[in-house]
Design a protein around this nucleic acid. Structure first.
Lengths: 263, 263
DNA sequence: TCAGAGAGTTCCACATATTGAAACTCAATT
DNA sequence: AATTGAGTTTCAATATGTGGAACTCTCTGA
């Protein structure tokens, strides 16, 4: 057997299998029955059964006896709190994101790359107060969002190619880029421009301008975007926010690089 | 070997051990070195090493090569999003919590029990906008918080006793209850009153009134609290909010029981 | 009322993944 | 050059996990 180095694919060891199952349950988006999971899984009945039992006994899953369904457990929420605090840009970026939010008055997203997808780690909404986990922790596609493209564009060539091929292209709107070639070309343009736009590629009527957050060594640390609806703003209007956006991105990068956990 | 039935203690199987390690890393609250973890762990060097490798390759941990430290990984944030949405009361309770927040204008906490501790799943802050994960996902002690005591009080006797003995009593303030006996007595009083108070037991100057969220079968689903500082309010003042608090708790319970995931 | 189907659970001989003492590498000290 | 300590690798022993098959329920329909 081989042992995956950087993950991306799946399953090394029992732990890997168990976590695969976790992912599957989480991905369902609602409590799942044993049979459902069995159908999608390539594990034999008994194996899957035992994995579910183990995960449940560990609090990683919650089993609803009356409905006979499995759902992700609260232990995850606990663990994620630590992850968000320690490993995401959000805590460090907060003051800068706050400031940007106040300044531009539009919706702000702070995101990081996770397995070729966009993982939103923080958000400021123009109107309603922050929407907790329902936004932080949410994932989005890499190929048709502003932050996604901004981050992909500045990945090292190999990683970028790998990530591009990991995308599962779907035409959310008529403007969505739906081929690796189109995306690759767009990414080159973004690299040249230093900034990316979402021209209603993900959702009709939603546009955004996004910038990568790059370390001094030009490593992609995350992405930052300003989103608006076509009713309230235009691409040109967003383009005018570019200085504020990139400046904030730089500040975040600087803060993140200098950050050391207090001894 | 035995196989733990309901968790609470630890480690069944390899998966259990791996998750133990996860917990340890998360608990450190900052990136941890191998040696640190080794010192605290009762696994031999090589074993711990492999577990860390597996977890890292799975994205459950992030390894910082230059500093040689492990931290919880972003994969957790993703999984937790699903957990929070599906298994916590927060999404269902949101409208009610919003309404209560608007009505009373003080800080609101929505919490659930997790391994004898209080896990905050949502929060509304009177002044500043919500503080994201830094609050949702945070854990607190069960024996000296309003929500903690409210939930403990209404647990079935056996579970309650177990939970009481799971508390690691520490005198945060001069008013903290520091013995199982004192707590048990307080819980009886709370059960009689139907409501609990935190009389600066956890933090000097912070008081709160809390109610359990009970299913129609009287199972504890969670807890809801209104918090204030002694500068802004008094216990009597909070006591006047009791109707609003309990009514909201009832509404949440009702909504949660009727909730079905759409087919 | 009873056969049949489907979901969930248990069993156990077998195979593999996990174990951990010990040996090793690679700095940083002394 | 010798020493120490952190981190990494090896490998035989074996504890753990595997999965086909058999079993138990609980429905469903004749």
């Amino acid at each position: 057997m081989n042992r995956q180095a950087t993950n991306g694919g799946h399953a090394d060891g029992t732990v890997g299998k168990a976590l695969d199952v976790m992912d599957r349950v989480a991905a369902k988006g609602r409590p799942a029955r044993f049979a459902e999971l069995l159908a999608e899984s390539d594990h034999p009945k008994a194996t899957l059964y035992r994995l579910l039992q183990t995960l449940t006994s560990q609090g990683m899953l919650i089993y609803d006896e009356t409905r006979q369904t499995y759902a992700p457990g609260l232990r995850l929420v606990r663990l994620a709190h630590a992850a968000w605090q320690q490993s995401s840009l959000a805590p460090i970026a907060r003051p800068f994101v706050d400031a940007l939010s106040k300044q531009v008055g539009e919706t702000i997203h702070l995101a990081q790359m996770d397995q070729g997808q966009v993982l939103y780690v923080d958000k400021r909404n123009a109107r309603r107060p922050v929407e907790m986990f329902s936004e932080a922790g949410k994932i989005g596609p890499g190929y048709c969002t502003g932050v996604g493209k901004a981050m992909l564009a500045f990945l090292p060539p190999d990683d970028r190619e790998k990530a591009v091929n990991m995308q599962s292209f779907f035409a959310h709107t008529s403007r969505t880029l739906t081929t690796p070639e189109a995306l690759t070309q767009e990414l080159a343009a973004i690299r040249a421009a230093g900034i990316s736009f979402d021209r209603e590629e993900h959702e009709q009527g939603i546009i955004c301008i996004a910038a990568p957050i790059l370390s001094s060594a030009r490593r992609v640390m995350g992405g930052l975007s300003i989103t608006a609806s076509t009713q309230r703003n235009t691409l040109d209007g967003l383009a005018r926010l570019r200085p504020a956006l990139t400046e904030t991105a730089h500040k975040i990068a600087g803060a993140a690089e200098n950050w050391q956990f207090p001894d």
